[in-house]
Design a protein around this nucleic acid. Structure first.
Lengths: 196, 196
DNA sequence: ATATTTCACATACTTAGCGTATGTCAACTC
DNA sequence: GAGTTGACATACGCTAAGTATGTGAAATAT
């Protein structure tokens, strides 16, 4: 029973997949809603019914990607030797993830422009929450200086984000990436109470 | 003589002013070119002749703002006691500048989304160049660790930028700003060879 | 089991705004 | 002062977002 809500969820998922592809490929504004819907055998009617408007669709896509990234970052962080290494690992993982064109285009470029500041997103930017928690743990354990955890998390993410943009846009990403990671870890070490 | 190029420069300037206002107010995509031109008694013909397309207009606006910011940052940095203090001062100046809605909307949100990575802009992001030079000076003097100067500059700017976005979006910017600045300075100190 | 309602989605239409092709008149050239 | 250039205006087409309305299958009621 309830074949309708089942079908609806299925269509929503299909639309998000199609939108994700189109947004990544052409960018938000150049991606047409007719193309997205017809790619999965639906019409704009379905889109407006499910997501309200084009922004709503982008929000749904961003939310999905964001969740995936947070999950990934958490896994990477959990595998590190200690929590401090975990923070560094999370950061570099973030940089590497952000090298994917899809992430850049949708989450780092179009997302903020269309939806506004990431920290205000309904998805709450789960990625940010992850690092914030790690930072808090490290502060309470006396590893890090006693600074505002949200501030630290935001700046770390911002640094990593720009590092990724820079690396991706460079003609030789492979050569530049190590420099970016090195710089990131140097900056992060500024948060340590007792410098290495 | 040459009344024509004079008039043209004047019109260009007027259009940039109008565009700057419209972009800051409504955002890039919502700002209509008809509105911009009619606001200064011209038509879209003038706009397309001078800037090629809408993107070209945004590029011109961004270029102007960027130059202003670089000039400001340099002045602030030059007034500091030493070069290290100058770097910190530049960073906080950047954060404070980025609190202006105009800067945020045009340079930090719409700019990257429409024009792509800032470091590839024709204006070369003069602001970035300024910090890069400061960093190089500090490295050669042995104050900072020997890391890639461009990487350091990019990450510092990125951190500052996100700090500004965060502060501006917060319900109580005044209270949050000091935390942002504190975190920024902590991060920056990670670049120091001999920690304070 | 049939009638009724609901609602997920389709269809048709309106409108806004970018880009382009063409026109025009003042400013420079010869 | 006739010809040419070029900065800008005018007019048009086209794409694409949003909206209002239609439709048929699934859920519910009788």
């Amino acid at each position: 029973m309830n074949k309708r809500i089942e079908k609806m969820a299925e269509n929503r998922a299909k639309l998000i997949v199609a939108a994700r592809e189109a947004f990544a490929d052409k960018g938000y504004s150049a991606a047409s809603m007719d193309d997205i819907t017809s790619a999965v055998g639906l019409t704009r009617g379905a889109l407006y019914h499910n997501f309200g408007d084009k922004r709503g669709l982008l929000a749904a896509v961003v939310d999905q990607i964001d969740s995936e990234m947070a999950l990934y970052a958490q896994n990477v962080g959990a595998q590190a030797a200690d929590e401090w290494e975990g923070l560094l690992a999370e950061g570099t993982a973030y940089i590497e993830k952000a090298l994917e064109p899809e992430i850049q285009r949708i989450v780092l470029l179009d997302g903020p422009a269309v939806l506004g500041d990431p920290s205000q997103w309904p998805s709450q930017n789960s990625c940010l929450q992850t690092t914030k928690q790690t930072v808090e743990g490290l502060i309470s354990r006396g590893t890090l200086k006693n600074i505002d955890s949200e501030a630290a998390a935001r700046l770390l993410n911002g640094a990593a984000l720009n590092a990724a943009l820079w690396v991706a846009a460079s003609p030789t990403p492979k050569d530049v990436l190590p420099h970016a990671i090195e710089a990131f870890q140097a900056l992060a070490s500024g948060l340590l109470k007792k410098p290495v």
